[in-house]
Simulated scan of single mutants.
Amino acid sequence: MVRVLELSDVSVVRDGNVILDHIDWTVESEDRWVVLGPNGAGKTTLLNIVSASMHPSSGVARVLGEQLGRVDVFELRPRIGFASTATSRRIPPDETVFDAVLTAAYAVTGRWNEEYEEVDTRRAERVMREWRLEGLRDRRYGTLSDGEQKRVQIGRSVMTDPELLLLDEPAASLDLGAREELVQLLGAYASSGEAPGMVMVTHHVEEIPAGFTHALLLAGGRVHAAGPISEIITGERLSEAFGLSLVVSTSEDGRFAARAQS
């Protein structure tokens, strides 16, 4: 087991506002973490630190064994897979789905004059199969539904066999069918021996795939609770973090559901 992430006493302060407050957190290569918390809890900022897109105001952040502030982030970032709405906006709408996945090999968006090796093409073909994108191969990215675009984003993020995979609200805005298809795919991937350490930010416990092992609850920029998922995703813990009396149920396949207590 390899430690892929270690935050020690990490804080982020912007314009006098404390966004993250003395965060301690470690992620091992076999861990699959979900991060939850109310709006404004600091989830996006935390993910920006973990993706090497932002440095903390204080404390030490080590990603894949490298300390932020002492490493060339342009060499570090290609080792991290990151699927988010922000990355989606950089994909040209007229790009084919296959090229949108393939160009991740060069960490670019938009096919230009790159020369791809056969190993890159084979890897892209495999990713297309794994994420049910084969039928969309020649479609233009801008014509896809939200659910299809989400799968392309994740396909790009795993194309380079990352050592750490970050998912920023992968099921946001999806209808029920598209959400369940994506959650099923993520659960199968998370449960496989080939998956790297994973961190997924979400707003809803219903979007947590089976196979995720740990949960981090943020509230007010601080760690409210962190640990094995069965100990953290409980009515008591969520009620404290969200300030609302909640009931949590768990299905036989490890999926969660939450509702307000009547």
Rank of each mutant, 00 (worst) to 15 (best):
A41Y: 01
R237H: 13
A178M: 03
A188F: 00
E30T: 14
A190T: 12
A107G: 08
R237M: 14
L165V: 01
Y106S: 11
E207V: 07
E130N: 11
P196Q: 09
A172M: 09
H224E: 15
Y189V: 10
V183C: 09
I208G: 11
E66H: 12
D99G: 04
S192N: 04
S192F: 07
G81V: 03
P93K: 13
L46S: 02
V248H: 01
P78V: 08
V205A: 12
E117Y: 06
T109V: 12
S157P: 05
G135R: 05
D120E: 14
V199R: 02
A215V: 06
L64C: 07
L102T: 05
V183T: 15
S173V: 08
L64Q: 03
L217R: 03
V13Q: 02
T160S: 14
D161Q: 13
A190D: 14
D72S: 11
Q67H: 06
G42M: 01
V71I: 15
G81Y: 07
L102A: 10
G65I: 06
V247G: 03
L46I: 02
S84A: 14
K43F: 07
P170A: 07
D9Y: 06
Y189T: 11
V13E: 13
S245R: 15
G42T: 00
V34A: 05
T234M: 08
L46Q: 00
A105S: 15
E207C: 07
G220Q: 07
D21W: 02
G65C: 12
M200V: 09
T234A: 07
N113D: 15
L36P: 04
L68C: 02
S8Y: 09
H55E: 14
L238M: 12
L102K: 09
R32S: 15
A52K: 01
A83W: 01
L182D: 07
L166D: 01
V127C: 00
Y116C: 10
G254W: 07
G147F: 02
E194L: 12
D146M: 10
S251K: 05
G135L: 01
E118L: 14
P93G: 09
I49V: 14
I19N: 00
L167H: 05
I229A: 07
D31L: 08
G147P: 01
E169P: 00
V101T: 09
V205Q: 12
E206G: 12
V205F: 12
L216W: 01
P93C: 06
S191W: 04
V34E: 02
V34K: 03
